[in-house]
């Protein structure tokens, strides 16, 4: 039996060609085109997905390295009828213009909220220990791996900050 990668709860066989990146596997092999290819070099974050609960650049890893892993893509986060809290906040705050970077932004921010909940420090954190104070500065640092060529950053930060602060109350 072939090794499998579980994507949004469904198991798929690992591709035979070892050159296939996890990103190309998602888009071309199993037809989940929500995850976007921007730079294909780990610089833009458009391809961000969540693997075993951790956000990574799917362009810089081989599908063959992920058999047995569980991947969550934008298709597994929300639907038009039932968007996640972050997706609602992006709509409310107009956190995009063209929308190309948005799946990566949402996947990245979804995992980032878990990192904040676990009080992982960032380069912007005053202290390495204790609770992280949520701020625009923290969110900008933590989201620096996701570029938005339309420059919707102010609204993206506002959307994420609202959900992050809500999670704390």
């Amino acid at each position: 039996m072939a090794d499998t990668i579980t994507v949004n709860g469904t198991a798929h066989p690992v591709p035979e060609d070892p050159r296939v990146s996890l990103l190309d596997f998602l888009r071309h092999h199993i037809g989940l085109t929500g995850t976007k290819k921007g730079c294909d070099h780990g610089q833009c974050g458009a391809c961000t997905v969540i693997v075993n609960g951790i956000r990574i650049n799917s362009c810089l890893t081989l599908a063959a390295m992920h058999d047995g892993d569980s991947v969550t893509t934008i298709e597994g986060i929300g639907t038009p009828d039932d968007p996640s809290a972050l997706q609602r906040a992006f709509l409310e705050h107009d956190g995009f213009q063209c929308g190309y970077c948005t799946p990566g932004q949402i996947c990245s921010a979804t995992a980032m909220l878990e990192e904040l909940a676990a009080d992982w420090p960032s380069d912007a954190s005053e202290s390495l220990e204790g609770r992280i104070a949520i701020s625009g500065e923290e969110i900008r640092e933590r989201m620096s791996g996701n570029l938005c060529r339309c420059g919707a950053y102010a609204n993206i930060v506002a959307a994420i900050e609202e959900v992050a602060a809500g999670g704390r109350s």
Binding site: G42, I54, R55, I56, N57, M112, L128, G145
Partner: peptide, 16 residues
């Protein structure tokens, strides 16, 4: 060491 690592790359890259 924590500070040096956190000053490099992005969270997605450091996670991998």
């Amino acid at each position: 060491l924590s500070r040096a690592i956190l000053a490099g790359a992005t969270q997605q890259l450091r996670n991998k």
